[in-house]
Design a protein around this nucleic acid. Sequence first.
DNA 1: TATGAATGAGCGTTCATTCAT
DNA 2: GATGAATGAACGCTCATTCAT
Lengths: 198, 198, 198, 198
Amino acid sequence: MTQKTDRDTVIERALDLIRLRGYHKTTMNDVAAACGLLKGSLYHYFPGKEALAVAVMERVCETFVKHIVDIAQDEAVPVEARLEAIMDETRKYFLSREGGCIMGNVALEAIDAVPEFRPIVRKYFKDWIAALARLYESRFPAKIALRQAERIVAMIQGTIMMMRVYQDSSMFEMAISDILRDFRAAPVITTEVAFAAA
Amino acid sequence: MTQKTDRDTVIERALDLIRLRGYHKTTMNDVAAACGLLKGSLYHYFPGKEALAVAVMERVCETFVKHIVDIAQDEAVPVEARLEAIMDETRKYFLSREGGCIMGNVALEAIDAVPEFRPIVRKYFKDWIAALARLYESRFPAKIALRQAERIVAMIQGTIMMMRVYQDSSMFEMAISDILRDFRAAPVITTEVAFAAA
Amino acid sequence: MTQKTDRDTVIERALDLIRLRGYHKTTMNDVAAACGLLKGSLYHYFPGKEALAVAVMERVCETFVKHIVDIAQDEAVPVEARLEAIMDETRKYFLSREGGCIMGNVALEAIDAVPEFRPIVRKYFKDWIAALARLYESRFPAKIALRQAERIVAMIQGTIMMMRVYQDSSMFEMAISDILRDFRAAPVITTEVAFAAA
Amino acid sequence: MTQKTDRDTVIERALDLIRLRGYHKTTMNDVAAACGLLKGSLYHYFPGKEALAVAVMERVCETFVKHIVDIAQDEAVPVEARLEAIMDETRKYFLSREGGCIMGNVALEAIDAVPEFRPIVRKYFKDWIAALARLYESRFPAKIALRQAERIVAMIQGTIMMMRVYQDSSMFEMAISDILRDFRAAPVITTEVAFAAA
DNA sequence: TATGAATGAGCGTTCATTCAT
DNA sequence: GATGAATGAACGCTCATTCAT
């Protein structure tokens, strides 16, 4: 039969469903139906549900986090503007989609049940944090900068949780504002900040 | 047959299991087995799985959050000491148990799937935030104090998430330290602080 | 503990429930709750669900059918008036209760599944038919009279079925009218009608 | 896996089982086993037990009642011969199968418990009655003819009930004879009989 | 590739029944 | 007599997965 879809489409559809319903409540049938397929057909693209979910999470790393990393590394732009751009992307990313952060959701729902999920979730957070730490190194020593980045990611995840609980996105806007305000209030380190990355 | 367990024990066992495995992956059979019962016997205590989970979440409100509220309201103790006590309880509560925060987990896993869960999760966070806000009102205007309290709860939840992802509790310790340091750094409002509570 | 109910009450409550919901859909819990008891307590009155249902059906024989037999045997009243009285009772009996005829219902639902039900259902119909046959013997030879009585009972049961399907009791009224009209149209046998029964 | 059965076969097997055991006592496992399947496999053909039962009942309308309607409409055959043919089919239909009439059984057992059953049971009886009424219109005015048809269907259902109670098919034969005798005794309307149907 | 029939294990739930208190 | 905790089997249903076509 002629190709009805492709691996990328399956990933995209599964991403939306898992974000909204969670890993356990998203069935292979749901995903297949969203792709216009029957569930058996999914096994041509992925060996099983876990592998599909891993591919979905890798996709999130390759898109959202990759985008943020790219912005953070763009040295043609002033550091503060880069942070603003990142926060802008972050806001757009999480406010334009229902279901919050799929990686955060999977982290709390299935990271212990499915060991294969842990490394990909870790990579997601590590890369995100590293990208932010880069920018904070213009204001703080490396160690402090890393800690600040961790705090910011934790705050964003915690705020997304509150946003879902109260179905109110204003908390997210406020959190973004706070982060930018605090950054601007930090003294600039004038010497070679050295993005001598790993 | 003679009594093998009681409602409270069932709640306690279910609480542990749901915190560790999540709502959907915890089966009535799991809970029953943890109580030494067959799964059908649970229906003497609860009309169904959702009702059991609600009872579990109410129990968390009546214990953990209630405890924190009590500390926050104890005006015989200086405000800073109260916050320290609360943070100490919070640290003990989340570090002595595996699985993080059952309310946060359920919030991200099942709050959309099971509408009955939303009010109880909301109450949990609202009471927790209100207790903290009370203390911050000694340092900030009410509105700011509330916002600070929201930030702290979001930060704790985000940090618990990181802790589960990285299986490392040091981030939690650091978050607690940061919160206390920031509080101590805030200027005390010397005039009418007015804990003239209801 | 003091007596909360008695065997008769249990039978009466079970009768209503089984008539309305059928044998299989009526649970011991339903019956117990209708009596203000817990289901375990029913086993003080009846050894099990089947025995309870048998008692219920015997009760119907002792009341409805017994009443009809009594009317049929009352030789102080003219035959036609006795048939009218029986039809009046029949109409009142089936139109004042929802659920139709419990014996007919059980006959079609459970007579093969529960062998103990067959003799009691047979007795119910046999006695009812015999009572009517007695009256028809004033108009027809015994064999024909019996056949007429069988026809009438079958017609009443079939009409109750239609009544339940269409939720319309007018068919029942019409059936009763037809039966009486046909009886009145039959020629009276003037010689020894002989109710010299056993 | 290669095909073990098909939708029609499932319907046929379920029809036999439900007729014999009733709706509530027929389990999905029973039906599946009768098809050589596991119970879960039935859900490829029907979304649930109720839908399967509805399909079964629709099948009865499409076969038994449809057959009777076809005979009744065949104006190439004299009216009396058509009624004889219908009664012959009716006798064959109900005497060659155990369990009586599945629609009558469901009517008394489950029509209140499962609202979806009512329309299909109503259609079954309505079509059957309408087919007979057509024939009686050659002897009686339309209104009377309809009433006669209703009586006949009620009588057949009541007789099937008796037949099941007494495990004796002779009552059914007698009922058929009576119906035909009464029809033949009715005066033919010689003028505009008018099967000028819609 | 895609289908769709089938599996098999498991789920939440029901319920007649038992029995120590 | 009545309770209510517990059983154990069964029920309708779900779902990830397999596989012949």
